[in-house]
Amino acid sequence: MPNICVCLCLGFRLESLKPEPERDSQQKPPPPSIYLVVHLRGKMASVAPSRLAALTRLRCSVFGTSYNPTSQRTGAKYLRRRLQGPSMLKYYPLEASFAALNRANPEWKLIDQDEQQRLQDIEDRKKRGKGTPKKSTAKGDSRRTQRKR
């Protein structure tokens, strides 16, 4: 490590905490005060940007973070995020159904009474001429297009 101590002090002046005196509307407000204090072996000096960059790179290698001075988007967040799929699949509780059991075990052939009744009802309705209407093959024959607006 180079013998540099960088101390970044971000703070507002104490004056800003006091109630502000009456000012003319034309007068500009004072600029926010941000102090960057750099101690270089006891003497105050301005540091070259390349030196600061070297410091940042070194700090990254020490703390195991990636050096990205231009804040380039690396897409790492898409790899870092946990996968959502497994927990999404678990949302609805599993329901046992005859169809699922039959699909899993083809030799079982369980009979679902409710489903049989439903199919029987449909057949009965068809016999009475109350079945669902046929879908039209041509586009113009569709009942939706003939509907009056």
Partner: peptide, 11 residues
């Protein structure tokens, strides 16, 4: 996710 990573990676 893999495609997203490639598509969003400015490098």
């Amino acid at each position: 996710r893999a495609y997203l990573y490639v598509a969003r990676n400015q490098a």
